[in-house]
Each structure stands twice: as C-alpha cells, then as structure tokens.
Design a protein around this nucleic acid. Structure first.
Length: 155
DNA sequence: GCCAACGTTGGC
DNA sequence: GCCAACGTTGGC
C-alpha cells in the first residue's frame, strides 16, 4: 500500500465539498500534468491513502485523509468542450488524461499548515516531495514514515 | 499582484 | 535535440 498527497484549491473544491458529496466520494478530475497523470494511471491502488491538501489559499496545508476507492480511468472532462479542462488532444479512443475516485476518510480537527510542515523539513520530513524547492506537482508520493509523522501531528 | 520555478510547445 | 517563449502553479 502506498501513501500520497493530493492538492486541491478550496475555492474550487475543498475538503468540505468532499464531505458533502454523495458517499463522500468524488472523481479527481482535471489533472493535466503528465507526471501526476502517471501516478494516477499507473501507481495508485485501491486502498491507498492520500492527504487532502489545500493549496492557493489563506492557509495552505493538509486538512484530512482520503482513500483511493477506484483506480485510474479516463478523465472524461477532457472530452467535454464546455469543461474548463477540455483538451482537444485527448482522444476518447486513446485518452490522454486519467483520474481516480477518492472517498473522505477523515477531516483533521485542525489543518496541518504548510508552515508547520516546514518546521520539520530538515528533520522528520526531510525529502517530502511537497516541500521540495519549486515543487508544483498536484499529486506526490509520501513515504510511510512521513505519513505517520504527519498523522501524529494531527492528533 | 508579484515572481520564482517549472512543464510544455514549437521553431530551428 | 536544443532552447526560447509562453503559460501555469502556488506561496507570499
């Protein structure tokens, strides 16, 4: 089993939106980066857990935990001309973009802010992809040790 | 709003 | 294959 971190802008879709979704489940559509696509298409497995991370907001940070409940499948929003994430180059016969389904497992009582994570970036969280310089990937892997440390911060 | 960092595109 | 130009991300 693997661990991940998935970014979302709360102004677009935050953890409270997920909590209100049917069965607390949603498809993680709109990812238009090949590396992140590859993680969803090739590496994420049912039962994997991911941190839900709020980005581009007042207080960026990890706000909860989701479970991967459906493995990679074509992102249909790429085929919809009227969708913000439409991509004319994604052919339904040979889809370019993929998504997974995630279900909310837990919302932290308090967010683990990026500032808090940074306090540990040279020690317990050394090497965490999220904290790497210039990192912009919306989906990144998290080691088991880092996972445990961050979950403990939320207690 | 600024800007550093990065990914993608396209000309050559 | 190189690399400049461009667009996007995302923290501040």
């Amino acid at each position: 089993m693997s661990y991940w971190l998935m970014k979302s802008e709360p102004g677009v879709f935050g953890i409270d939106d997920l909590a209100k979704s049917p069965r607390k489940t949603t498809h993680w559509d709109g990812v238009r980066n090949f590396q992140a696509r590859n993680f969803m298409r090739d590496e994420m497995r049912r039962g994997d857990l991911a941190f839900f991370y709020h980005s581009s907001c007042d207080e960026p940070g990890v706000v909860g935990i989701v479970e991967i409940v459906k493995e990679g499948y074509p992102d249909h929003t790429a085929f919809d001309k009227h969708d913000d994430h439409f991509d004319a180059d994604s052919d339904p016969a040979n889809p370019r973009w993929y998504m997974v389904d995630v279900r909310m497992k837990r919302k932290f009582r308090r967010a683990i802010t990026l500032a808090t994570l940074r306090e540990h970036e040279h020690h317990a969280l050394k090497g965490l992809a999220l904290l790497k310089r210039g990192n912009r990937l919306s989906i990144t892997p998290v080691s088991a040790a880092h996972w445990k440390f961050i979950v403990d911060l939320a207690q």
